[in-house]
Amino acid sequence: MTSPPKANYRAIAQLKSFEELLERRRRFGRVALGGAILWFGGFILLTCYAHSFMGTLIVPGLSVAYVLGLSQFVMVWAITAAYLHASTKTFEPLQEQVVAHELAMEPAA
């Protein structure tokens, strides 16, 4: 499937638009994953070690644990939505710029 590289990938990797794409994707990944790991990790640690705090009832029937557990789902939904949004708005246009460059640099087959 991968015949010897046709394009000069190192050169493409040094394109301004590619560097920007990479930087923006990585920044999103760092912030989103970093935040998510903190929030989820905190929840799991509390679940393991702070039973009485997590078992506190906010109103009868509703524990802190359930609220924080539910917040994990909300967080995953929110970050996924933000990623899909950033992809259409930011990543895709940059990606198209890079691919346009790549095609221009490709030797005629």
Partner: peptide
Amino acid sequence: GFDGWILATAAIFSFLLILIL
């Protein structure tokens, strides 16, 4: 009780890894 639900939150979290990585 609640212990049975912890793994559900872990499994949904894994989808952030799948999505972003």
